[in-house]
Design a protein around this nucleic acid. Structure first.
Lengths: 247, 247
DNA sequence: CGAGGTTTTGAACTGTTTCAAGCTCGGTGG
DNA sequence: CCACCGAGCTTGAAACAGTTCAAAACCTCG
């Protein structure tokens, strides 16, 4: 991956082989990259939806504040992710995007999708697949929030993050840098910061995890997968049905 | 809508105008329709994923059973809906489909999407938009399960159902036939059947709703929308960016 | 009329929240 | 170099929303 390589090309090329045409198309879509400091709100809920972003560096999350003052984080964004996809279907964005740490993003215009859909069935299929897979993952999260205990929810979150990181980093161990504070974890799994603290402490005492700074070590991932009925949706997407590109 | 009209054509034609070519393409995809009795599991989690279904009649839901014995309903399917979309990205389906009452479905093969993506950019964009909008709706539900009280969750569910029914039935009032028992409602909003009963009774006593048989009348929908920060994602999808079909 | 599924109601219980205080630790300024 | 500050984490006690269990009431349909 050279320095001038487009974020989009490297992200999508990860799933399927791209024709030279496709590479060209994707590269031209990308605007110059941008940096944001930790804690910055990059766009706000209800802003007009014009750009998508590929994450080049750092973690981010999308959140909503509810009428009663509580906050729900609806998505964590890791390097390589495309941010804002679902909002393409709406005139305005439906959540606020916040940098969890210092980040670098590659914006590209929403209209890019138009071009892709018109000219590249293969890329269209890939993008659709990614959108659908993300939906499956949301359903998994829904099950966790709907009917699991605090402990299982947190386990689930950790397993999910590990699986995501392992896509691009095959040989990875079960150690995880977690650049989120406990209030953010709580807002994600639907608990309070206090109970997240208590639950993490208990998990540590029971030997499920070990913590040092903001890294977490999963000591019995299989047991945790068992308890949460965890499935890895990332490693085996079905891309067998993709159409070939027209000639 | 004639008797021989394809389910898919009438579903998709609802959003955009379809060319005669597109109509032809869609019609040929559809297999003959099928009926199932109330309570039937139509397919089971982990079955191979081959077909999608358009709902012609009746309500259904997709659910998962968790290791601890609890059940989570992840999606309610109403007439006009396409079932199984997210699973296209997987080799096996990720939840079990169950008929909440007597239903009629129109199956069509997963490979249909291949054809559409190759030949019709405009239909591709529509399908992608629907998938993305569904994702937004899931995020809304996630917020509800993650950080709302029992009362707000149930309010949210009712508002969402009403909004969905109003898509195809513009002049509809705030009365809703709800062919689900309280255990199913509970499995959907992440509560127990007992507490659903208690909450519904309280809502009725407070004058938020009225019940007769399995129909529910929303008496103060605006107040409920306020309390749950409800947004109607169905009525105004952004389809302005769709590509025209090639000639 | 009886039977089975569904809803209601009450009492005891539990997981999670709330509030509040104390602790840790890295960063900053005197 | 130390004192102090603030953000985040931990801990405990009290309160509460929602669960569990169990029994009774209700409905619909054969």
């Amino acid at each position: 991956m050279t320095d001038r390589a487009s974020c989009l090309v490297s992200k999508l090329g990860h799933y399927i082989s791209l024709s030279e045409d496709d590479r060209q198309r994707l590269s031209t879509l990308e605007k110059s990259e941008r940096s944001y400091g930790a804690g910055t709100d990059i766009y706000q809920m209800d802003d007009p939806c014009t750009d998508l972003f590929v994450v080049k560096q750092g973690w981010l999350f999308s959140y909503n504040d509810l009428p009663d003052g509580s906050r729900q984080i609806v998505k964590l964004h890791l390097p390589g992710d495309i941010i804002g996809f679902p909002d393409v279907s709406q005139k305005h964005v439906t959540s606020t995007l916040c940098a969890a740490e210092d980040v670098v993003l590659c914006p590209f215009p929403k209209t890019a999708l138009d071009v892709i859909l018109r000219d590249s069935p293969r890329l269209s299929a890939l993008i659709l697949s990614i959108a659908l897979r993300d939906q499956i993952i949301l359903l998994d999260l829904l099950r966790a929030l709907g009917s699991m205990t605090a402990r299982a929810r947190i386990s689930y979150m950790l397993l999910d993050l590990l699986a995501r990181l392992k896509i691009t980093n095959k040989g990875m161990s079960d150690v995880l840098r977690l650049p989120l504070n406990q209030s953010q974890i709580a807002a994600y799994v639907g608990l309070t910061n206090v109970y997240v603290s208590k639950t993490l402490s208990r998990m540590e005492k029971d030997g499920d995890i070990a913590r040092t700074g903001n890294t977490v070590h999963l000591l019995r991932p299989e047991a945790m997968e068992e308890a949460t009925d965890f499935r890895d949706r990332y490693s085996d997407m079905d891309i067998g049905w993709f159409p070939a590109n027209k000639v």
